[in-house]
Simulated assay, not measured.
Amino acid sequence: MRTKRTRLLPIVLLVLLVAAASSGALVSAQDGENPPPCSTMPEETEEIETAYLYAEYNFTDADLGVHGKLNGDGWTELCVYDPNGELIVAFHAYAQVGNLGLSELFYEGSEPPLSEFSLDDLRAQFPEGEYTIRGLYTDGTGITGSALFTHNIPNPPEITSPVIFEDEDEIEDEGVYPIADMVIAWEPVTESVFGDPVVITAYEVIVTNDDVEDPNANSQPIYDVHVPPGVTSLTVPAEFFQPDTLYEVEVLAIEESGNQTISLGFFETEE
């Protein structure tokens, strides 16, 4: 199973967007006099610096999620609305954090198996279109913006080198390699999972030392490179590898709207 890793951003929050889509708005108007989040906008507004919503399809693990990246310097409140105007997620900073404000935010939706949340479920529950962003900066200026979400989810890249195994506990002899430069190669992706043409803007190659666990220091050895769409191989230098070690290799196809599909597997190095 794919190793979950925290992206290197100042604020990282986990938001169950899929649950929100299944059960209605994540945050709604409260009873009494409290207005719903982001309902009051001042006359002075600024557009948010960065706003992305994208689907991540893990072909190997057969799961699917919807993630977001929001970046605005010094905000206290941010909300996201779907194309129908439904509030699907809201963030609010309180007390001393609210006084200082937040900046970068990456949130990751849960990734249930396709048997519980399929590609067709995604299309039904997360319509294509512009998702509206609203919020407030610490100085009272309003935040506006939008993020485009599409259903252009790439087919999985087929990894052709090295020989890898989906189950880390069932690696055979051909999946054990000496310490040397290693070429990671894959077939190009030209279509979506629904059979439509897609524009790939990059591939991402991630090789992870799975024998190192250091969640607090964030020091797990990871070789992570984005390459242009015309490149279908990457050489990982021998210096990255250690003997008798389990490695996970992932190749991601990234489509122009940000949607990405992952293929992955495992190999080991010789003693």
Rank of each mutant, 00 (worst) to 15 (best):
N71A: 13
S263M: 09
E77F: 04
L9D: 12
V231G: 08
F266E: 01
I88E: 06
N259F: 09
Y57I: 01
L78Y: 10
A93L: 14
E46G: 10
E86C: 10
H226S: 13
L70T: 10
I222P: 00
P197E: 09
E86A: 13
L13M: 12
Y223C: 00
A90R: 05
L148C: 02
N209L: 05
P36V: 12
D169S: 08
V251C: 00
E86K: 14
D244S: 14
T45N: 08
A180G: 06
T40C: 05
I222F: 12
S233Y: 05
Y223I: 07
F59I: 02
L102A: 13
E271F: 14
F106P: 08
Y131E: 06
E255P: 09
T160S: 11
W186I: 01
A124S: 15
S23F: 10
V80C: 08
S22D: 10
P154L: 05
P156W: 03
A51I: 07
G129Y: 00
F59N: 14
T138D: 07
F266S: 00
Y131C: 09
I143C: 10
D73W: 13
Y54H: 00
N216T: 12
I133N: 07
E104A: 07
Q220M: 13
L264K: 04
E270A: 13
V199N: 15
D181A: 07
L87Q: 12
H67M: 07
G145N: 09
L64G: 06
L252R: 00
V205S: 03
L148K: 11
N218L: 15
Y131S: 08
V225D: 08
V205Y: 03
I171W: 06
R7P: 12
A93P: 10
E255N: 04
L234G: 07
L53K: 02
A29Y: 11
D63Y: 03
L9P: 01
V249T: 05
Q96L: 10
T235G: 03
R5S: 11
T50H: 14
L102P: 08
L14Y: 15
S161H: 13
E271A: 15
I143S: 11
P197H: 10
D214C: 04
L246H: 05
M41G: 03
P197D: 09
S219L: 13
E172H: 10
C38G: 01
T269E: 02
P228V: 00
D31Y: 11
Y94K: 06
D210S: 02
D61L: 04
L70R: 12
T3Y: 03
G74Q: 01
V66Y: 04
A185Q: 01
D224M: 04
D73P: 06
D82I: 05
F91M: 06
D120E: 15
I143D: 08
F126L: 02
G24P: 01
S118W: 05
I11V: 15
L64C: 03
S22V: 00
E271Y: 14
W186S: 07
I88S: 06
A29R: 15
P162D: 04
V199A: 14
I88Q: 06
I254Y: 12
S219H: 09
M1N: 09
G72Y: 11
S115K: 05
S118C: 02
